[in-house]
Amino acid sequence: MLQIHNLHVNVAGNDILNGIDLNVRPGEVHAIMGPNGSGKSTLAQVLAGRDGYEITAGSVHYLDQDLLPLTPEERARAGIFLAFQYPLEIPGVANVQLLRTALNSLRRARGEAEMDAIDFLEFVKDKLMLLGMDDSFLFRSVNEGFSGGEKKRNEILQMAVLEPQLAILDETDSGLDIDALHVVAQGVNSLRNAAHAIILVTHYQRLLNYIVPDQVHVLAGGRIVRSGGRELALELEQKGYAWLEDKASQADNAADLMEARL
């Protein structure tokens, strides 16, 4: 589904990613772990098509097409979803308005009929129920005045509505209490089937207790320094990231600097 080959990324003159290789097949869940500043978020943003990242080498293919030339909305319409680490507030725009506009954009792109307001409301209420969320969520402005946990849950609601083929969750678990973590895990697990793939970007092992990954990758200094099964995550939890420091190059510091700014 997703093939990343030797990906190098530079931001404002600093090399952040220094040759990433990653292969994600349908049905798989990959966890990408690593210390702060290792380039995890950069990878997520590059996959979603954010401006300001210069691809200096390598390639990314998604469903057998070259992903890199696509705009963010083309990627979304092709089934890629990024749950943001810091979801944006959009004053005056109701959540339900964003959800429906987004869903209908995707449906139009797929040649499907748009959903009218009444059908949509029914559809979205099912999703809310599934996630144990309140109707009032729909009518509040997008993320405005939401708590950190509510924002993250809102990202999962969007994901549940848009039903992406490849979902990338960028530190969706950080700062969540146990209840919110359950909601997130439930949302992700409900999406999990043979056709969908998921990339979890996370600092902590905790989320992986609820969403069991097929593969775990450790990112440091802009490279994947180790890959393994779930046990790798547990090992990281015990040993911390300190042992990785030898492996981290100077680029790590640069990455640190950049990510701190983002």
Binding site: A48, T71, P72, E73, A76, F81, F84, G92, S105
Partner: peptide, 29 residues
């Protein structure tokens, strides 16, 4: 906000739709 635009585009909205949505939100009152 470029960040707002990117967020909406990453949900599948075209740039123009994203701008309109933000502008309408801005003017809603």
């Amino acid at each position: 906000g470029e960040d707002q635009l990117f967020y909406l585009r990453s949900r599948g909205l075209s740039e123009e739709d994203a701008v309109n949505l933000i502008v309408n939100g801005f003017c809603k009152e």
